[in-house]
């Protein structure tokens, strides 16, 4: 990625039908700095809506969402559709009747990736998540936690510059959550891949995230451009949103 590449959102609003769900959001996300951006806020805050905009799946109702470097400013959507991967929240994101590897084959074809290479990635990341046995299994027959792992393995294995993970820890037990954050940390540090994750669980994302966007009721209520300890993050979450959700 270019040295000074960043995503710039300016006065973004978004309507679902006649209902306004995002209100005048402005933010910057540096793509050249390794690390993880955390979208944090309670359920229904607008995190998934922001992620869909960032991945180019949906478009703005008003405002600007651009990709900026020292010489150029272009609309983010078309770039994102080629360079990002959005993994939705919940037990969703892969074809139910296919195995995890078949899903990987399908998504790599959709993205024009080299399947041989991404399948090697998948085997490697599955080992890191202690999930080797999942690869040959049918997605629809996996448990909630296994489905989440499978979805993450496919997402991180594909060749993308921007990986957008919506509530990736939901459904995972404590050990699996730790494995997942280790994996996200490893990918963020070792690869040319920027990761954006959303969570309503500050305990989960404190370890790896180094830029925070706190979201509430469709607004970014605070940004913190640095890593925070778990205690600091929980305190910040409580002061902004009240009770910490699990």
């Amino acid at each position: 990625m270019a040295d000074d590449l960043k995503i710039v959102g300016t006065d973004i609003t978004k309507f679902y039908g006649k209902t306004q769900v995002l209100f005048d959001l402005s933010f910057e996300i540096e793509l050249n700095q390794r690390g993880v951006v955390g979208l944090i806020g309670p359920n229904g805050a607008g995190k998934s809506t922001i992620m869909r905009l960032l991945s180019g799946i949906t478009t703005l109702s008003a405002g600007d969402l651009t990709l900026v470097n020292s010489t150029n400013t272009v609309e983010l959507g078309p770039w994102s559709r080629s360079n990002s991967f959005y993994a939705p929240a919940g037990e969703r994101g892969l074809r139910n009747k296919l195995t995890v590897m078949d899903n990987l084959k399908y998504f790599s074809a959709l993205r024009r990736d080299n399947y041989e290479q991404v399948s090697q990635n998948a085997v490697h990341y599955a080992e890191l998540l202690n999930a080797n046995t999942l690869l040959a299994k049918e997605f629809g027959k996996l448990s909630t936690g296994q489905k989440k792992k499978a979805e993450i393995i496919v997402a991180v294995s594909l060749n993308t510059k921007l990986l957008i993970l919506d509530e990736p820890s939901t459904g995972l037990d404590i050990n699996a959550q730790e494995d997942l954050m280790d994996l996200i940390d490893t990918i963020a540090q070792m690869h040319e891949k920027k990761i954006i994750i959303s969570s309503h669980d500050p305990n989960f994302i404190a370890k790896s995230v180094n830029q925070y966007l706190f979201v509430s009721a469709g607004r970014i209520v605070k940004t913190v451009p640095k890593q925070m300890t778990e205690e600091m993050l929980v305190a910040q979450y409580k002061s902004l949103f009240g009770v910490v959700e699990k």
Binding site: R52, S55, I57, R81, S84, G93, L94, L110
Partner: peptide
């Protein structure tokens, strides 16, 4: 859309109608 893969298919450079 129920399976949550419509989003990924929409990110593809292959048009959805073609798929």
């Amino acid at each position: 859309s129920r399976a949550g893969i419509l989003e990924t298919e929409l990110q593809s450079s292959f048009p959805l109608w073609f798929l």
